[in-house]
Design a protein around this nucleic acid. Sequence first.
DNA 1: GCCGGAACTT
DNA 2: AAGTTCCGGC
Length: 737
Amino acid sequence: MKTPGDTGFAFPEWAYKPESSPGSRQIQLWHFILELLRKEEYHDVIAWQGDYGEFVIKDPDEVARLWGARKCKPQMNYDKLSRALRYYYNKRILHKTKGKRFTYKFNFNKLVLVNYPFIDMGSTGGSVPQSAPPVPTGAGTHFRFPPSTPSEVLSPNEDLRSPGGMFSSVARRMARGSVSDCSDGTSVNSEIEEGNTGAGEERGERAVSGGGGAGGGAGYRSIIHPRLSHETLFRMYGGPGNPAGHPGSRGHTGHRIHPEPLSPFPVSPLPGPGGASLLAPPLSPALSMTPTSHLAYTPSPTLSPMLGSHFSFNPEDMKRYLQAHTQSVYNYGLSPRAFLQYPNIVIPQPHRPAADKAGLTAERGATERVERATTAGGGERGGERGGDRHHHPPLAHSTHHHPHLPHSAHPHSHSHPIHHPLHLGEEPPHMSPFKFKLQPPPLGRKQREGQIQSKPRQSSLSSGSGSGSMSSTSGLGSSLSFGSDLSSASGSGLISASSSTQSLNSAGLPKIKVEPISDIESEEEVEVTDISDEDPDERDEEFELFSPRHFRACNHHHHHHVNGTVTTQHQPHPDEDLDEDVFKTPAPPPPGLMPFFTSQHTQSNTHRGLPTLKCEPPEPAESNTSPSQTASAGAPQTKCIPLKLRFKRRWSEDQRMEASQEESDDKKVRPEEERERQRQSNGQMEIEEDGTGSGEGESPPPLAYEGSIATPLASHSRASAELHRATAQLSLENKDC
DNA sequence: GCCGGAACTT
DNA sequence: AAGTTCCGGC
């Protein structure tokens, strides 16, 4: 099953370094785990088991050994490895399944976001199904996290490599290579990568593979977020040839099956060989797990293929990319910084149009599992409506594993397939009313504790003591609960739907309407409304994405603004500064088209105006937009609200929540009863948090932007022109970098 | 076994 | 930043 070529890593090299994290040049433990998990050879050692995302280390010593080999740390043992694993708790990447020995569970939401911002969790819901392990079955969620993409699947290497040269096999190898130089000479890689060999030899297990599993490979097909269809991605990046395929066509559902194996990765941002350089900048800073205070790096755009010097993008692609990116931001609560690069671009808000939601049904229809045979998996799970939302745990191996499919529902997935922006034309009417609903109460971070079956001990989350590391880590997350698929699920659905419509505006410029709100959140005065609809968002977003520091900052002053008024400027705080950069008001854009980078200087520049807020332009295209929009349209500037506000609001909320949680967390000391209470309340909290992130059901209507898909040609042209311009600009900027 | 602090390494 | 190593405590 594995292709020889792949030798191993399913993940493209760049996948390993999602963030710029300098430090982590090498493979990260969670990636490593994922790798093992996807290989049948290692099933004896470690395998998916239980709930979605849950895996069991069957042979701790062996896993440790493998890890040690990979890292060239011969002294590695399970104790150490487990320590590393525990650090993930704070990062929310992983959590322990209590009561089960050697059993941990991934928080795919987190992982995905971090690594693949492009992937839409949103639709998927932001929910990445948490539990869904990458299953071979395509079915699971649409989004499978571990993108395994074995090379086979992906063949992408070749195929994908887009013009830009996506990731070359070489690169991958190199990556691996890095690992290998252990003293002993045994290349670690070999063990793992060769998988067959290594593992096989050792364990002799490949048998399993039998067909189904197809090894990780098959299983994993990539999941790309529906939002971004593969196509989109490909296109963006120069995609493979899946040309025709409109996915849509595939099932009637259309939605998506990915014709081929798509892996999420296909998109690798890495430009060819040079990729490495690109790596540095994470796709989105926001994503970074750690709070970096400074914006040290520029956000993704840099990474984005488009930017890459190598590539040239066409406007359309760029547009898509941006939108996708922006969406991610919104959906996931990414830092607005991400948009710095594109000052003039309006960030589309995901609104979830009802119509979009509909799409699910169709999807559902599609198979839950996608047949791998045909396509890779794009399966999205579709609708969640009924109870089906859950994905199956994908076991890496196909069938055999599921001990139980527990899962309850994690709805998450929403896959909404359809909505990719890409398919503009295609988007069929999704009729199904998809509802996202959430899931069961999320267990949040506290889940771990909550689970306490046996252990009375509450783990403290990290915040408490002050170890540096802790603090940093803890910060990060603010709030998310791991398990909560729900959050993602709910959110995602909506989001996705919305995205479809909106996102692609022909023009690409979304319009936002802002209205002042006073009440909802005390803090924020301004509300942005989604013109098209506001769904409250139930979607959950990943709050974690937000960097903590913001939260903190927010605490101090969250009230910056007066109702309705925007103040973008005043915030003294350093943090604020960041925001500022991000949010800076954009220079007044010319109505028609604003040049993308008007102000761009260098990245560093103090501020380039980000057009975070967009006023509604008088564009005609809006027909699509909901009436509300129209109405809003009338109001010009007053309505414009800086995204900043919006974000702040969220942040504030998150922060608050976090604070409260943290408080509780911090107080490890509290009596059991207290804890209990806390736990319970946590559940709520988490939910809220989720809500917050996403859209807070209550409040904030997302910014609406115009998303008429069918835009007039004129718009297109304009957009194109802009994009071109932008592209050019980016190129220039990159050079500097 | 698991947890998490602390110091240290890359 | 992301572990690695060591370790006391439950």
